[in-house]
């Protein structure tokens, strides 16, 4: 009688301990997907004249590069908007992966780099000439470093959340953003304006969408379980 039950019990015990020792996958949680869109007339982006940096002018001779303050996609969508949990955040994991910010063809790649507080990132110069990398924070310390061609990546991180414009004084058209957040629940809208934030534990959240020219929009969303909620942020675009 006793032995008869022992074997399956032992098996269950074995399987459960094996499962427990495996790395625990992050809680599946809910997902918020959606699009960032605009109404109205967005400003026209201007072609950038890079004549002052012959290398870059040559690189973009075939197709000129445009400013990226407002990048629109099909169906009135907006690229480079940052959507993040601004209130009610829970279950965030620290950002440990080293991110990459490249200077290529006198442009920043990506235009908007979102990161977490204390998350390391490297700044790379892929151009055959010097850049100075000059982020302009007000809360975090302001530094300004030169990076000649062929020098190793600069390592950096910020310890306070802040939206930081980045510029290169030598090439004044170069313009990007470091978005430092204290949540791991964020996404940047793609070329079709879509975003997706995964792994949200059940709860009530405020999601904020930020676009460098149009400011911020916030929406509340409640996640009950492993569901997917769809929301749309709509900015009012002004042609200037």
């Amino acid at each position: 009688m006793k032995i008869k039950y022992f074997y399956p019990l032992f098996l269950v015990l074995l399987v459960s301990t094996a499962l427990a020792s495996l790395p625990v996958p992050p809680p599946a949680g809910g997902t918020v997907t959606g699009k960032v869109t605009y109404t109205g007339t967005p400003p026209k982006m201007k072609p950038i004249d890079m004549a002052k940096e012959p290398n870059c002018a040559k690189e973009h001779a075939a197709s000129p590069v445009f400013t990226e303050n407002v990048v629109t996609g099909p169906g009135n969508t907006l690229e480079w908007a940052v959507v993040y949990v601004s209130a009610g955040d829970q279950g965030s994991t620290p950002g440990t992966q080293t991110l990459r910010f490249d200077q290529k063809g006198c442009q920043y790649m990506p235009h908007v780099l979102a990161m977490q507080v204390d998350q390391p990132f490297e700044i790379v110069n892929s151009d055959p000439h010097l850049h100075n990398i000059h982020p302009l924070p007000k809360i975090n310390p302001e530094w300004n470093k030169s990076q000649p061609p062929g020098t190793p990546p600069l390592m950096a991180k910020y310890d306070k959340p802040e939206f930081i414009p980045v510029k290169c004084n030598v090439h004044p058209w170069m313009h990007g953003w470091f978005i430092v957040l204290n949540t791991s629940h964020y996404a940047i809208s793609g070329s079709d304006g879509s975003f997706s934030i995964k792994g949200l534990p059940p709860g009530k959240y405020t999601l904020t969408a930020w676009q460098e020219q149009f400011g911020t929009q916030a929406q509340d969303v409640t996640i009950a379980g492993g569901e997917t909620k769809n929301i749309t942020f709509t900015f009012k675009a002004l042609p200037y």
């Binding site: 100075n132 990398i133 000059h134 302001e142 530094w143 300004n144 470093k145 030169s146 990076q147 000649p148 020098t151 600069l154 004084n169 030598v170």
Partner: peptide, 14 residues
Amino acid sequence: TGLDGTPMPSFADV
């Protein structure tokens, strides 16, 4: 050291 707040960057790393 660079002159912080101005375009003059630091060359200490290079």
